[in-house]
Simulated assay, not measured.
Amino acid sequence: MTTTTATPRTLPAEWRDFVELTKPKVMRLVVFTGLCGLLAAPVTMHPVLAFTAVLCIALGAGAAGALNQWYESDIDAVMKRTRSRPLPAGRMDRESALHFGVGLGIFSVLLMGLATNWFAAGVLAVSILFYVLVYTVWLKRRTPQNIVIGGAAGAFPPLVGWAAATGQADLLPLLLFAIVFLWTPPHFWALSMFVRSDYAKAGVPMLPVVAGVGATRVQIVLYSLPMAAAAVAPWPLGLAGAVYGLAAVAFSLIFLALAFRVLVNRSAEPAEMKPEKQLFAFSILYLFVLFGALVADKLLMP
């Protein structure tokens, strides 16, 4: 008598699965910072072209998210918070995800170049390739510095938005890039501290897994300090006015206070990591407020 093992059949993917493949929750912040970079630029774009530029940023981010899930389907299947995604849940085959991600990425770059300028399209292409090749393929499974270096991928959108409007890069969008780049490690390390068992199970060398929660708390503070300095810098440099400056100072002080609360917390149990969870939640609000204040500053104090 012979026995056979049934292989789970991949179900036909629905449109909702393709939307989920783009990581829409992550995309919201990407689109917002890209839009703010565009609106903060010293030129006014035609509304249709501005909408197209922001759409391209969204599509580019979606492409990067889809390719990330295509490559990491094995990790996602192990981790509790990701195992319901379309690929590990068996609602989509990997080939469809790959084709979708590549097609979306190429389309977003070409449309950006045709609708705005090829410098912006080039920066968008670099951002997609950096997230997929540098962060996802090269860094994430190899080093606890994955978030530090890979954070550059999420820092590109305001630079892309500015480039779409002006066709060049200037000091202010470079500072916006630096803010998001320095913000990314505290943001993700705060999250990874109370889900580190998931990362450990999947073999991902996040900092709390390989260095421990104590070292991670120190690193959160060390990155929060230059982040706050970069956030405030546009005001004294004359690149933004008091509306932005006061918001940046106030919210950066709150961010630092929460980071120091994380530092003094001695618990290694996820259930007792309230300061870490508060910092993670506030870090999202922080970026929304900071970039929103930059646009408000331009509108109220032209």
Results as ranks from 00 to 15, higher is better:
I179T: 12
V19R: 07
G62F: 01
G34K: 00
F100Y: 14
A293M: 02
G122N: 04
S197A: 15
V126Q: 05
A257S: 09
L55H: 08
Y135V: 02
T216A: 03
S192H: 06
P275F: 01
V109H: 10
A61W: 07
Q168E: 14
E269D: 14
T44E: 13
V210K: 13
L129V: 13
A202S: 10
L104N: 08
T5W: 15
A77C: 15
A233K: 07
L111Q: 14
Y199A: 04
Q278N: 15
M206K: 10
T10F: 04
D93S: 13
M273D: 00
A152P: 07
H187F: 06
P158H: 09
L207H: 03
A242W: 08
V126A: 12
V295E: 01
A202I: 09
R142A: 12
G105H: 05
R141Q: 11
I254M: 15
A63C: 07
V213E: 11
L111R: 02
P236C: 12
A6Y: 13
V78A: 09
V210T: 15
A190L: 08
R83Q: 13
L258N: 01
A125C: 11
W138P: 01
R141E: 05
L133T: 06
A233Y: 04
N117R: 07
L98P: 06
E269V: 12
W235K: 02
P226Y: 13
R261E: 03
E276W: 00
A58S: 13
L29A: 06
L139D: 10
K25H: 15
A233H: 09
A296C: 14
P302I: 07
L129H: 06
A125I: 08
A163T: 06
P234Y: 03
T136C: 09
F251W: 09
A125L: 15
T166M: 08
C56G: 01
L59R: 10
N146I: 12
A53R: 04
P12I: 07
L263A: 04
V204P: 02
F156A: 12
L222P: 00
G203W: 10
